[in-house]
Design a binder for these strands. Structure first.
Lengths: 322, 322
DNA sequence: CTGTTAGCGCATTCAT
DNA sequence: ATGAATGCGCTAACAG
């Protein structure tokens, strides 16, 4: 592989001149520039990135850290991140939990986007204190050096609930997720707030406790159907549970949406229900990835201070509601 | 960030000694070694990978190149690749078509796994001629320097068909994919060979032409049902088309599998059919990723010559067959 | 407009 | 068992 020295020798100039041409400096004569450029093409010269990085102290590479390979929506996030980074000519490396510590410290990357629950806040703050540019997804860190990109649970659930009310639904059941998780709290509170504003009754009887799993949705659906506690609509804290509820209702011959409507939250493809069936707040995965990357790039390139971005999940209407 | 010089100074030794300790050389006194090691911990020293790479001429990083972010099974492949590379302490970077040329030439990676149809054979052979270690997936290159990992279409379709015959199916329809694609040719030929061996009749009437899409499956299914040409089983060249056939049959109240059984090929999750419904040859995505990575690592580390690996897709029985 | 020089952080001879 | 010197390929002061 030809290096800059070879080019310089062949062109009868110094490496500096070659370097200047390569980096677009103005202080090079036109014919010298041309000669060097054509020589580079002829000799198939490509600058050695390692050397360039070593010199500049930067790598022009960002890392995306995640751990759950089961959820296909990660691919969409990766897609968004990749597109943005590529537009800015920044390389992307992917790593999982086990690799993060080594990568983060040895100057292999200039920044990272972290979406990996197995990495705790402490580790992230540690990395941030070493001047690593960081963006976390799906969590918020109380640090002025770490940006975050999260779903706007409140606004999204608010809109979903509002529109359900507008459609005429009055008797609501709510199937919550794991208690104390921010997702649960925010979605549930937003839901209750809208009902309250509309003076629609909501009692503890109307609340069911789930754990985000399809199973817990089935359980809750069974209980509702068997107990005869069938509302106009069951609002679920995520799609999985909504799928479970639908499944349970099917067993009991409870027509969805004629007898009871069902809504979810997430908007990812599921094997349980056909695409487009479930009314839900669809988290825009690609866009969130893109925005996370964009945020990171601005921090890396322009020294932008850390910021927090909440992304609203648009409501998608399916056949599970009228 | 502390560097090797800082450590050497603090330990009152030369950088050479520190380097030797870090790289596990034997020629260092035990107490000196301990002192240096503890100093590294104290000062939170991490070797600068860029410098190390520049020096060694290697990057210890591999690249996975793909382009289709819509297909969720890519995540499984990535998972397999990642696991293998990580076991060997090799970093992984992901890139898409647009980035490959720059990455491949400037010494940013030591090798690459390519699963991107928008990259043509020529580009790959070019890279190989520059001593880049390469593994291609889902295609075979006629080059002694490029390894390949592909699905063993013949063996898989053979087994699937054999087992269908064993189960008593005698009247077969076949729904083929796009003509001249290796996948189509290999699967179709294997299918026909098994029927022939078993002296089971198969005429052009029993062949339907599809294009791998769900739509083309629906069309074929409609034609079969409307024409009254219903066999015991429809063997499809992929899952998508099988899903289409099932859907068409449902419209015509043709019971699957009681009246007609249906089989597919691929084994990826689909939104059209519930998981576990379709009998199919399930391509082991994770394993193929892992094997591709393993092959690459051996080429990189042990100079293993290029090789070709065919991976059999195990038959998975679902409810679409008896 | 062009060249000389120094050094990024590290591994690797070759001495001692 | 330890150290001094050299250079990987490149960029950037500084000189001319």
């Amino acid at each position: 592989m030809a290096n800059i020295k070879d080019i310089a020798k062949a062109a009868n100039v110094s490496v500096t001149t070659v370097s200047n041409v390569l980096n677009g400096k103005a202080n090079v004569g036109p014919e010298t520039r041309e000669k060097i450029l054509s020589l580079c093409r002829e000799m198939d010269y490509h600058p050695n990135i390692m050397a360039r990085n070593l010199k500049s102290g930067k790598t022009n590479t960002a890392m995306f850290c995640f751990s759950d390979f089961e959820r296909s929506f990660y691919l969409k996030i990766i897609n968004g991140i990749n597109d943005c980074l590529h537009e800015h000519h920044i390389g992307m490396i992917i790593c999982t939990h086990s690799a993060i510590n080594s990568f983060l410290r040895n100057g292999f990357v200039d920044g990272a986007i972290v979406l990996d629950k197995s990495i705790n806040d402490r580790q992230i703050l540690d990395a941030a204190s070493q001047d690593m540019n960081l963006v976390v997804m799906d969590r918020i860190l109380d640090s002025p050096k770490v940006s975050s990109v999260v779903t706007d649970n409140r606004a999204s659930m608010e809109e979903l609930t509002k529109r359900l009310v507008q459609k005429g639904y009055r008797r609501f059941n709510y199937l919550g997720g794991i208690e104390n998780t921010p997702d649960h709290v925010e979605r549930y509170e937003a839901f209750k707030a809208v009902l309250k504003t509309n003076r629609i009754a909501f009692t503890p009887d109307n609340y069911y406790q789930g754990d985000y799993s399809v199973q817990s949705g089935i359980r809750a659906g069974n209980i509702m159907a068997m107990g005869g506690n069938l509302p106009d609509v069951v609002v679920c804290a995520n799609d999985n549970m909504a799928a479970g509820v639908v499944q349970a209702f099917r067993e009991f011959d409870v027509d969805v949406p004629k007898r009871v409507a069902v809504s979810g939250f997430d908007g990812d493809h599921m094997s349980e229900l056909p695409d487009g069936y479930l009314t839900t707040a669809a988290i825009p995965r690609y866009e969130m990835g893109y925005l996370a990357a964009e945020t990171l790039v601005k921090m890396m390139n322009e020294g932008m201070p850390a910021m927090e971005r909440k992304i609203k999940a648009p409501v998608v209407w399916g056949r599970s509601t009228r």
